[in-house]
Design a protein around this nucleic acid. Structure first.
Lengths: 207, 207, 207, 207
DNA sequence: TATGAATGAGCTTTCATTCAT
DNA sequence: AATGAATGAAAGCTCATTCAT
């Protein structure tokens, strides 16, 4: 399976991918190192050649996930289109991403719970800059809003904290879809979400 | 301490309150039965006279928490005020609630992670109707929107899934605050949140 | 076997005794918690109700062993006899003690090796005052030497560090017996040991 | 680093030296093959080209250490001096040796503990003739005592087991110094040790 | 010869759950 | 009803040893 010529980084990535698959399927908390090893087709001990502790795998998985989202967002943000159009695309892309891999989105909750994000208890280990990732999400949205303002596509008095509202709206919507996949699907939510966001930002009369 | 005359239900509630305090402080995953017992001033074995399994305590805790929110929402929804004003109050109340007890909000993540909400894996035990709770959230909002429509306070073409967008927006915003408490606080977010929600729903030009 | 009425301390002592038996038989390093549990007729987990860590058992075992020796020494030192005679008795008693339980004496090496006595590496956990025990050994001998001097039974110019020499001699002799039980037995060594010690201390012509 | 022309034995010796350094520093029990490899500047697997099992390294280390001591003792024993003087030199040399490398002396405990010297449990592998080494120690001392007797430098009725007493005294003294390096140093112990040994053996009145 | 990635048996430790009192 | 000592399954992690290159 794994060629002997594989570099240390590649092997690590391979194990990480396996771990993400299992976490998504079983949940981090219920996933044993043994499970990750089996999925990655290696022995238990091998895992520890690439990760110091079980929790580090979760951290790495989250970072890989978040990086993917950020990369996609940055690409869209750089497109040659009106800012408002790019904002719309970003919202659609995030919802579409969750559509294709809902289990992966779940990983975020596991991460929150395991890492006690927002809790008063502290956890050992090198912390993942969770907040920093959201700061960048918001900055990206904020920068688009500024451009849209300059382009006259958005009201001039948009409150400062609006990026957080938009990011929250998208993430919260994903939660809803995760909780009640029967009633709600991400793709179907794009239109009403944008209706709320954009019409609220429109300079003149909506639509 | 606990009077001999206490009923089984009262005692159970007392233990549950203790558990919620510890879960909020320490996180469910890191909370041992022993910790709950200590907080409730009973012996470890006593817990098992009121709950069959450890996870049942988390379920019960979540239900009690969600019931509290719903009760509050229902009360506001019944007030003698314009529907739009009640909608605004609900949003403000939810954000204010998180403001006063951020640790309690964290319980929701623990619940998701432990109960594998939205995941493909199944968990044993009597399931809590997680989705149902959100259905009721959305119905409450949806009903207010209908009334607001009738009152002419809201555009007639508000998309059907808008309640999910609003609930998501509030929950997502809470997540943001939890993740980055330094930069964001729930109370400060009420105004920009309502700016996005309400102006987006307004019939004519915003404001 | 173990009556339910046993106090926590008694139970701890019982486990400790079992542990000492196994350590003596198998060596600390090769002894698994499981082995101790089996010898003590309890489950593995029970051990941890009385000792926090595996190493703590060794510490406690050593302390119990050393306390026994010290108690015996103190008792002899208080006897109503000439000081020199009591010194002789102490040497004989220590050698006789090792005679009856050579395996127990081995425990000391395990302790040294595990606790890295005298080494540059540090170990975690509450340290056992190893040096302090030997300080007391030496003080006891030293005090007897002083009395013997006053009684004129010993030369006046005995060097200050002589107690260390005597303690060392006895312990070192025990090592020899441990290493080569075929050729040497503690009981047989008492006479030559005393011949070296006492005649060396005699004021006039030896014997 | 290591020249290609190095013989198998030389390489083995080089690894052994590295191992002794690490054992002395860290203790055998806490030393991993990896540590030895790093110190010897070879890969882990290379160790196994020269030693079959981890314990064999300890055995070899001990033998090399003991051989060094014996060689030194033999050299002194052959000197052209009165036997008593040579005995004195040997005692001084052993104490001085420990003075220069206390960590190395610790190796002996590790060896005892790991090899279960004196214990009832048996260990696999080719055993090191631990007892034999001490036999030779004692024979060397015994032979010197005989010569001293012939030279009239020592009482005629020295008990047969006196060599064991002397060897034990020196070793035991070293233990004391190891245990309580603050209070005792080997070099300072030479004089009181010899006072006990020699004056005890003197034919007429001491000094 | 030398390497070092891979292995997996085996250990310590934890803790939900039970049950005799 | 209440207790808390006892249990033992279960899991994370280590590291001596192997072996393909």
């Amino acid at each position: 399976m794994s060629p002997r010529s594989m570099s240390k980084d590649e092997k690590r990535a391979e194990i990480l991918d396996a771990a993400i698959r299992v976490f998504a399927r079983t949940g981090f908390h219920a996933t044993k190192i043994e499970d990750v090893a089996r999925e990655a087709r290696v022995a238990k001990g091998t895992i520890y050649l690439y990760f110091d502790r079980r929790e580090d795998i979760l951290d790495a998985a989250f970072v890989r996930f978040a990086d993917g989202v950020l990369t996609q967002m940055r690409a869209i943000a750089k497109a040659r289109e009106p800012a408002l159009s790019r904002l719309r695309s970003i919202v659609e892309a995030m919802l579409a991403g969750a559509q294709s891999g809902p289990d992966l989105a779940r990983l975020v909750f596991d991460f929150w719970a395991a890492r006690r994000i927002g809790g008063s208890g502290e956890r050992p280990g090198t912390p993942v800059d969770f907040a920093g990732i959201y700061v960048e999400y918001r900055q990206l949205i904020g920068s688009l809003l500024e451009q849209a303002k300059d382009e006259g596509a958005v009201r001039a008095d948009v409150p400062e904290d609006t990026p957080a509202v938009i990011v929250g709206l998208v993430e919260g919507l994903l939660l809803q879809c995760l909780v009640d996949p029967g009633a709600l699907t991400p793709s179907r939510m794009a239109e009403p979400a944008l209706a709320v966001i954009l019409d609220g930002l429109a300079p003149g009369a909506p639509h």
